[in-house]
Design a protein around this nucleic acid. Structure first.
Length: 567
DNA sequence: GCCCCGTGCGCG
DNA sequence: AAAGCGCGCACGGGGC
């Protein structure tokens, strides 16, 4: 069963059944949308069709309503726009409906949270006849949903694209649920680590913020290590370059990799300073104050936030937490984490995509690189470099040689990424296994690389560089985006399986998702059941996304009370 | 004083 | 060991 729903201001909402013949029933005004949704969820399997999970679902979760399945019209519209070569155009319901009608498309942002959706009803409308705008929005939603279903069915691979739309929508649900649940975070442990590494937290004082003791001391020693004796701000690359030049050391930049090759007394101090300053600035006390409350880190995940289908995050740097700080991620008393990590996901994805027999056999078991080593005179490290270079487009060092071996021994696997690279260089688009489409080249790219038509006009000298850069992007896109397809389907499957597991102590919760890694927080007694669910979800994702293939997609799991112990 | 961009570095 | 791909965030510094 499918139910279309449009939220109103406050607790109200408008619900309408969509029949098997795709015809809408009569709209029903729910005075308390959350409880109406809870009621429907109890009565059996159904899919909610709504404009935007990120807008409606956090409120519902807060009111205690969880849903199993949905169709997020905004996320699906973005997928369809991407397929049509128009990524980034407004994908919210007002824009989608306007496009359907052939009317001028309202600017993006109108469909952003707290946009007009929130104003569909006045508070006084509760129990009254729904406002005309609400009825119109519901009609728009149903029309847009119908059109989207038709567009999905018209895809070259409708089953796959439909799976993508479902997984993208499920991802939206998981993202909202994970943001609401939060990642267990021990602020005390974090604070002690900061104090140990940086010194005591400086007391608030007027003027520019003070450095913690350890950083201040390092900064002073760095300044003293330069010949001029003048103050040097170690946070300023420009000042550092000048100070080094004054001492006869010329560097292109002050990044770690460059500094490591430089002989100067300030360098070791600088490297130490940079590492600690980074921790202080990005994940220090103010981060703790801002993002951690009640023992949870509450990040905001943005499902579909990356062109490849990976998630992005907003605020708190949820997807860049330094490994060091995993020490502060500690399960509640009596609870534990099941940390699941897809092992060597990208080479396995390439193996399944390319259908290269020998390569796929190598990806059927435990260690892909070890299985490929025999082709590289038994050297596992060489096999790894060859694979990474093929997927990322690197060719420096000995990578060129290793790529030639790869091309000879595994022509189909090599050919798959080479073809993607060529497509990109020629300005074409490429798609992931489920049909997520990369953006077309920008106008600037076309103008740099385009032939002028006049043989006397010199080709832009940057043309080759721009073409190759786009080739690397599309080469990587087919692998990264297909890996994201798999991970999203696995996440959706795990989410569904977890919903069926619970104990007196409570049910398992997804609390973290980072590209190919998932963390479930659960009562200790449920760890085995959760571990089994992870394995099932991973295997099912392999079948759903890639069909019949010898390639396996194992997830390593660790049952730990502290995230830092997972590896 | 505010905004934007480049630099640098954390994660996969 | 670093590089090739994808991101978010903090900071300095220039432009307004």
């Amino acid at each position: 069963m499918r139910l279309a729903v449009v939220p109103g201001a406050g607790p109200v909402g408008l619900i309408c059944r969509i029949g098997d013949d795709s015809r809408p029933g009569a709209p029903v005004l729910a005075a308390d949308l959350a409880s109406a949704i809870r009621e429907h969820e109890r009565s059996g399997a159904l899919r909610w069709v709504w404009p935007c999970t990120a807008e409606i679902y956090p409120r519902l979760l807060q009111a205690g309503a969880r849903v199993q399945r949905c169709h997020d019209a905004g996320l699906v519209e973005a997928l369809l726009l991407g397929r049509a070569g128009r990524p980034g155009e407004p994908a919210g319901l007002p824009a989608a409906a306007a496009r359907l009608r052939g009317a001028p498309v309202p600017a993006a942002g109108l469909s952003a949270p707290a946009g007009p959706q929130a104003a569909l009803f006045d508070a006084g409308d509760i129990g009254a006849v729904p406002a005309a705008t609400a009825a119109a929005a519901l009609a728009d939603l149903i029309a847009v949903y119908g059109a989207q279903q038709e567009q999905i069915a018209a895809d070259r691979h409708p089953v796959r694209f439909s799976l993508l739309a479902g997984a993208e929508s499920a991802g939206g649900l998981a993202a909202a649920e994970m943001s609401a649940a939060g990642l267990p975070w021990d602020a005390h442990v974090h604070n002690e680590m900061l104090t140990e590494l940086l010194g005591r937290r400086p007391a608030p004082a007027p003027g520019p913020p003070l450095r913690p003791a350890r950083l201040a001391e390092l900064a002073a020693r760095i300044a003293a290590a330069f010949g001029s004796g003048r103050p040097v701000n170690p946070d300023s690359p420009a000042q550092l370059v000048r100070a080094l030049a004054a001492d006869g050391v010329r560097v292109q930049s002050t990044r770690q990799s460059v500094l490591r090759g430089v002989q100067h007394p300030a360098v070791p101090l600088l490297l130490e300073y940079k590492e600690l300053a980074r921790l202080h600035a990005a994940y220090g006390w103010s981060w703790l104050d801002t993002w951690v409350s009640d023992g949870r880190f509450h990040p905001e995940y943005v499902a579909g936030g990356v062109v490849s289908g990976r998630w992005a995050s907003r605020g708190g740097g949820a997807l860049q937490i330094p490994k060091l700080l995993r020490r502060a991620v500690i399960a509640d008393p009596g609870w534990t984490f099941v940390v699941a990590d897809a092992a060597q996901l990208e080479p396995r994805v390439l193996a399944a995509l390319a259908g290269d027999g020998a390569f796929a056999q190598a990806a059927a078991g435990g260690d892909v690189y070890a299985a490929l080593a025999s082709a590289f005179s038994g050297d596992r490290a060489k096999a790894k470099v060859a694979l990474l270079s093929a997927m990322y487009g690197g060719a420096g060092g000995e990578a060129g040689q290793l790529l030639a071996v790869l091309r000879q021994r595994f022509p189909q696997a090599s050919g798959y990424v080479e073809a993607a690279a060529r497509a990109g260089e020629e300005g074409r688009v490429v798609r992931s296994v489920l049909g997520r489409t990369c953006p077309p080249p920008s106008a600037a790219w076309r103008s740099v690389t385009g032939e002028s038509g006049d043989p006397d006009v010199q080709r832009d000298p940057g043309a080759g560089r721009a073409a190759r850069a786009r080739g690397r992007f599309t080469r990587n896109f087919v692998v990264q985006a297909s890996a994201a397809d798999w991970a999203l389907v696995a996440l959706a499957g795990l989410r569904q399986r977890l919903a069926a597991i619970s104990s007196a102590a409570g049910g398992p919760q997804l609390v973290f998702f980072q590209h190919d890694e998932m963390i479930v927080h659960c009562p200790a007694g449920l760890a085995d059941a959760v571990t089994a669910a992870v394995a099932e979800a991973a295997a099912a994702a392999g079948r759903l996304v890639f069909g019949a293939t010898p390639v396996s997609f194992p997830m390593t799991t660790a049952v730990v009370r502290c995230y830092a112990d997972a590896k």
